[in-house]
Every structure is written in C-alpha cells, then in structure tokens.
Design a binder for these strands. Sequence first.
DNA 1: TATGAATGAGCCTTCATTCAT
DNA 2: CATGAATGAAGGCTCATTCAT
Lengths: 189, 189, 189, 189
Amino acid sequence: MPEVVGVRQAQAQRTRSGVLAAAASIFVDQGVQAPIRDIAERAGVGVGTIYRNFPTRADLVTAVYRHQIDTCAALAPQLLAESASPFTALSRWVDAFVEFLVTKHGLGAALGSGDAGLENLHSLMLDTLVPACATLLDACDADDELSPGITAYTLMRAIGNLCITGTDYDQADAKHMVATLLTGCRRKE
Amino acid sequence: MPEVVGVRQAQAQRTRSGVLAAAASIFVDQGVQAPIRDIAERAGVGVGTIYRNFPTRADLVTAVYRHQIDTCAALAPQLLAESASPFTALSRWVDAFVEFLVTKHGLGAALGSGDAGLENLHSLMLDTLVPACATLLDACDADDELSPGITAYTLMRAIGNLCITGTDYDQADAKHMVATLLTGCRRKE
Amino acid sequence: MPEVVGVRQAQAQRTRSGVLAAAASIFVDQGVQAPIRDIAERAGVGVGTIYRNFPTRADLVTAVYRHQIDTCAALAPQLLAESASPFTALSRWVDAFVEFLVTKHGLGAALGSGDAGLENLHSLMLDTLVPACATLLDACDADDELSPGITAYTLMRAIGNLCITGTDYDQADAKHMVATLLTGCRRKE
Amino acid sequence: MPEVVGVRQAQAQRTRSGVLAAAASIFVDQGVQAPIRDIAERAGVGVGTIYRNFPTRADLVTAVYRHQIDTCAALAPQLLAESASPFTALSRWVDAFVEFLVTKHGLGAALGSGDAGLENLHSLMLDTLVPACATLLDACDADDELSPGITAYTLMRAIGNLCITGTDYDQADAKHMVATLLTGCRRKE
DNA sequence: TATGAATGAGCCTTCATTCAT
DNA sequence: CATGAATGAAGGCTCATTCAT
C-alpha cells in the first residue's frame, strides 16, 4: 500500500483540475456567466461531471479564484511588515489586488452584479480579502494617513468596479484610475 | 393633404414616446437587460412595434437616455461660467453625471460591460458627454488644478464603473467613492 | 366590421384547441406527466406556444378535462330528479364518473399522486365534482340508504383509485370493483 | 477450502442485505421511484454494487418486499384455520395485506402503474399472494358468502389501488374504503 | 403601421447507466 | 466483487425574434 491516494482519486483530481482550467479559460473569454456546456466542452468532460464537482455555478467560480484570493490576502501582513509606511503597504497591496482582478475578465462585473447565486464568491471576498485589506486600512488610520470614512469593503468594491474593462478602457486605464482613487484616500496635509 | 405631419405620423410619434417612457420605467426596475416583452407590455404595444422602432436593444437604451445625456452635457459650460473655479465646476458636473447614472439601475453595468450591441450608447457618450467633460478638464488643466494624465473618457468610464451598485454597496457609497476619485484627480500642492 | 372575433384570435383559438387535442391524446398514451415536447410535437407547434397558453402543466391538464368535469357535475341534479331513488341516482352518477375516469389513462393516478403541481386539477375536482357528489350522498343519507362515515371526497378518491387500470386489470374490472364498493356503501337491511 | 460458504460470499451476502435495508428505508421516505444513488448512499455502497445485485429497479423492489409478501401469503391458511368463518378469515387477511401496502409509500402506485419494469414484482404478487387470496375466496364461495365474479387478482389489485394515499386521503381513509369494498363483496342475504 | 402568436434555440439540471480501476 | 467518477440523454423553461394578418 505504497500510495495513500489511489489512481482513481488522482484521476478525479486531474479531472477537477481540468474543469477548473477550462472554466478559468472560458471565464476570460465569456465571463463568469458562460454556459456550463461550454466549460464542459472545453474541459472535454460531460456536464454531469461539472455538476458533480461544483454543484452551483458559484462553487465553480469560487474554486477557480480561491487560490489567488488566498494568496492575495496573505500578502497584506507581509507588505505591512516590509514597507516603509502603512500607506505604501496599502498601495502595494492594492496593486496586487488589481493585478488579480484585471486579468480575470468578467470577475469584477460578477462581484459588482449583486447576483444572488454568486454569494459564495462574495462571501469568500468578504471573509478573506476584506479582513486583509482592513488590516492595512487600520494601520494607515493609526498613522493618520487615511481620509475618514473609507471602509475596506467599500474600497474594494470600488476597486473591483474600476477594474471592469472594455473597449477603450483597458487594464492600464483601470490601474491609473485605481491609483488616482487611492491618492484620493490619502489624507491631505 | 393640408397637414405636413399626418395624423398617422403623429400617432407613430406618440407610440414611440410611449415605448420610451415604458422602457425608462422598466430599466429602473429591472435594468437595461429586461425582457423586451415586459417593456412592450408596460407600453401597451406589441413587441413588434418595439422592434420596428428600435431594431436593437441598444437603440432603445440609447434613445431612452439621449435626452438626459444631452441635458447633462449642456450643463458643463453653464457650470463653468457660474462656478468659482474650474475644479468646482468639474466637481459639480460630476455630481450631476453621477446623479444621472445612479438613478439608472443597470446603466453603469451596461456601459462597463463592453457589450458589443451597446456601441450606440457608447458612441453617444463619446460624442456628447466626453467633449463636455473635456471642456471642464481642459479648464482645470489650464488652472493647474489637475493631475496629469486624466482624460475625459477614462474619467467618465471610471465614474460609470463606480456607480455600479449592488448589495452592501449603495448609491451613497458610489457617490463617496466618486468624490474620493475626484479628490485624487486634483493636483496636490 | 362584420366579425367580432378577428382572424388572428380565431387562429389562436384553433391553436389552443389543437394543443388541447394533442395533450388529451398524449395523456391517453403516456399519462399526464408526458413531456411537454411530445405534446408540442403532436400538436405541430413549438413548446413556447404551449407554455404561452398553459403556463403550468396543471393548467394544461385542467383545461383538457374541464369540460367533461363540468358535464359530469351537471349530471348529478338531473339524475337525482329522474331516478327512482337517491341511491339509484348515486349509482348512475358514479357510472358516469367512472366512464369519465376510465377513458382518461393516467388521470386517476394523477389525481391520487398528491403531486403538488396538480393542485389546480385537484381544486377543480374539489370545487366542482365533490359538491355534486355530496348532493347525492346527502339525499341517500336522508333516505337512510347510506352506511355511516362515507364522505363525497373520500368516495371519489377511492373511485379514482379503483379506475387506475393496467395489465390484467382493465376498465371492466375497474367498473366491477367500483360497483362492488358502491354496494358496500349501501346500508344493509 | 474448509468452508462451504467462503468469507467472500458471506461479505457479499451482508452487502446485499445492507442494500435491501437501505432500499426499504428509502422507499418509505421517497417511494419506489427514488434515485438509485440515494439508496446506494444510505447503504454505504457504490451504485455499481446495486446494479450488480439488482440489475433493474424492479429486481430491487421485488427483493425488498419478498419476505413480507411471503409472510402475508403464509397467513392465509393460518387465518382460515383459526377463524370462525371463511369470510372472517378473508377479512382479517385483507387487513394484513392492507397493513403491508399502506406502510410502503408508493408501492400501491407502483403496483397500479402498469410499469413494464415492475413485472417481476407483479409476478411475485401473482405467484404468491394471489393463490393465497384465492384459497380464502374459494372457501368463502363454498360457504355461499361471496358475491359472484370476484376473483383474487382483481380484488387484490383493487385493494392495492385503494391504498394509494395522498393529500386528504390517508391510511385511515384507505382502510375504510377497503373495508367498504369488502362489505360489497359479501353476498347479501 | 401595429400586433402578438408562434417559433425554437439555448441554458439549466437530474439521474440512470456504464466501466476502468 | 466493489467502487464511484464520468457520461449524456432527457426534460423543464425562457425569451429574442419573426411574420402573417
């Protein structure tokens, strides 16, 4: 019994990964509301397989982005520790967050849609990224570097919205506007 | 044939207006992606009539908002003339723009969606509001009140995105974030 | 304007009738749970047409049987008036009810299934046939011809069940068993 | 090979029993049309195991009820021997039969459905219960206590139908109606 | 021109059944 | 033998769009 994980589980895991990859790819092309069939087709599996692994669309969306979300959240304390000032840390973290969002076509729109079925993703953001961001904001606040009334959730939602790109408003524009927003968040001397 | 505009044309015009009013009303309730049938029903006409007058959904959306867009654009020179500073005028104009967006449920999302069919609305924005906004930005720039690199189109697109509301991110949040963005646009002394 | 009902309405009515006929036919073959697509195909219409005319399956089932249900209910007072005794009237009415049920394959099962979606049909029975049957039972009771504890609803439900035919239990058997049940309902001297 | 029945066979038998118990339990909750997967889950086995042991759903249904059916059949001669009259014996046996049916949610409907796949169960009834019931009917007939034309199969089928319960027609109603039917079977003096 | 019935493509979802391990 | 992941047929439902009247 040299293998703890059997061949079958390994295969299942590979299938799961394939679905995730296909979904990520399709999400880039069509957004998170793409038909399940399209994802199944690109993954080379039956629709039933997707439903087995991800009962709801939100489960799939969440799974696709979970790893990157966790990574992004983990960045917050690290940046806070190594940056010259809390605001610098916030700024860098926001850069990372934007980088995450901007490469996920349709995710920003999904987050902002208020779609009932996407509550899991919403919750994931709430539970993972919001606390991370809040830590940074608190540090800025303690340093008197932050305008009053800026909350982590609202700021992230705004950033998410700013990262909804389209014709004539690309990733560079989004980053510029996010930077501008952040400047606006800084308490003026 | 004593009348230049016949009774028929007058009736047709009335029908068109009725459709526009119904569409505006439905858009508030359900967003710009609402079923055509719902609009037809509220207008008291057949769906065919809507398709005759507005072949694509974008045509309808555009027509619904054209008047308000024109009004908003016309506000720019007026505010510029009566405000203490160009930046104040810009700020007030943005308030008006936000007010316009924020009361149109789903319009912000529509503008930001990159939806191919909504190019007409996009064009309308480009042709009407962007020049109006640009006038204000130019004036601010001449006054050295503006950070470099802010263009009218990008700024408006960003504002449009910030006005996409949803659960836990309401109109007040949107207005707050837009104001913050605007602060960020101001050249710091 | 010689026609009150336009050509279009007439056509629509014909379509509706065609759907009802097709549904009735399919119900005989497959029971009331038959796929909507099958009914649409036999009617030569699209599925949308069926959903337009009968939003829920229960609406369709109800419409298919409504006329006959009404006719059956109307029979009760008539039989009561012209029969020698109340129990004779009841007996004849039950014959008519059985005749109705027995030619509708699957209806009995549908009535007895407790299916939530079939509440409309259930209600139709309750509101139309149960009172008719109750009138006859009351008359029998007044004549001391009825065993105690027999209610219209339960009796009809039982009759409905007895009319669920199948292999080696045909319409003749159903009628025989219903007659036997009715005999059992008669107060023994 | 000192054991006639190996460990493997014993294990297989235990698996089979577990499936039967799970199926019986699920049938009570959801009826005999419950998803195979649900049964497998409750039994703690894979669906493949169920398909191996019971290739068709009918095989499973049959196996689940075989023991109780046999018990019920065996009751007939016993009741005939110890009852005051053949009709009393019949009446008691029917009580037992109803008790069997009434606690098996959906079984009555399954029996009455004419479902092609349930022929095995049908056969089991035919081969086991019908002869048992026929014995009682014959005894009643010999005693001149039975109306003419009542056959064991038809009577049992009718009883099975009467035991299909649902909203507003419960087990008590079913028992009442079966008792009434039986009264109707008794030759009137 | 206006109508709205009809159409059917398209998406969702469930579950019986197979088969490689 | 047992497993359960994978499959995909089947059916439900919605709406954009057309077209005969």
